[in-house]
Write a protein that binds this DNA or RNA. Structure first.
Lengths: 164, 164
DNA sequence: AGGAAAATATTGAATATTCAACGATTCCCG
DNA sequence: CGGGAATCGTTGAATATTCAATATTTTCCT
């Protein structure tokens, strides 16, 4: 009866009381990093829920959106724009090529580069996703307030700018 | 010479011009979801850089910080508090148990539950991490402004609250 | 010109995360 | 009380991400 199946489980008698006064330190919920993570997670979750029926993750929407200017974008530029590192982007683009949402064209001016383009299929999907995203933004603005939303965006932009 | 080694690469002649006027739609950089992702990513990157010398990912710091109230926290509560889903938390805690930063105690009142506690080793590490995190916050407040930082935190808190 | 260094994208192995299923325990209610 | 449903945490398989190494092409320097 002593050695149960779960490893790593102590039994309760080892509670030790702190011998020195514990300096409380700020709770995690007051750190900017935590608040950003939490807000980001929540907004993303909501957006993902809306995209669910199209079966497209948020990152692919970002890629499509960047490409929907119709110009070619190199993988490097795209990676920066959509906040993905290079290998992750390569693999995600592979999937999108399989789904015929985007295609690769070798840049004739610099043959190291690959220019990404959006396909017609990608464009029509993007439109559907955009309207889902817009409806989410509207929903946020609705019960969070237009002013708060605008203020928040402005502050975030400024933070990002300063952080670089 | 026709069939090169790279698959999926079209050659440039297939550029098609849009036949209908393209509605520009808002750029990705103006979406709240994108701004949050970008800010979160950047702040996290900076924090991770500071934690680098301790070799601890941000998530572990969050776990340690929550546990440093000295009370026991169930895995479920912890998962909510540190924004990780259950299996991910279980595996991260496994590593932290190996590193003797935390330990598990079976809850005697509800034997389905496991209560997590921080070890002494975990506590001293937490102190070092806290001071790194504080110095980051100070650095942010410094060239972003105390007011902006406070405003941003307030807005984020309110967004999170509304979103639930 | 020629060769070292830098830039670009991809690959493969190692690592991490997620999803679904499970085992154990407790709760609920007839 | 008894047994089905709910809760809690973990596991294993599938999937995704990351790190380091690679191949290719271009740039730079002398």
């Amino acid at each position: 009866m002593d050695q149960a199946k779960s490893p790593n489980i102590h039994h309760p008698f080892q509670q030790s009381f702190p011998t020195v006064a514990r300096m409380p330190s700020t709770p995690i919920t007051e750190h900017l990093a935590y608040l950003l993570a939490q807000a980001n997670r929540e907004i993303n979750r909501q957006l993902d829920a809306r995209f669910k029926k199209e079966g497209v993750p948020v990152e692919q929407w970002r890629i499509l959106k960047v490409l929907s200017d119709g110009k070619g974008h190199s993988m490097g530029d795209l990676a920066d724009a959509v906040l993905l590192n290079h290998p992750t982007l390569t693999k995600m683009v592979d999937r999108m090529v399989s789904d015929a949402l985007v295609y690769r064209v070798q840049d004739p001016d610099d043959r190291r580069k690959v220019m990404m383009f959006i396909s017609d299929r990608g464009k029509t999907l993007t439109q559907r996703l955009n309207s889902l995203a817009l409806s989410q933004e509207a929903h946020i603005a609705e019960n969070y307030g237009n002013k708060a939303t605008a203020d928040l965006k402005r502050l975030l932009e400024s933070l990002i700018e300063k952080a670089n």
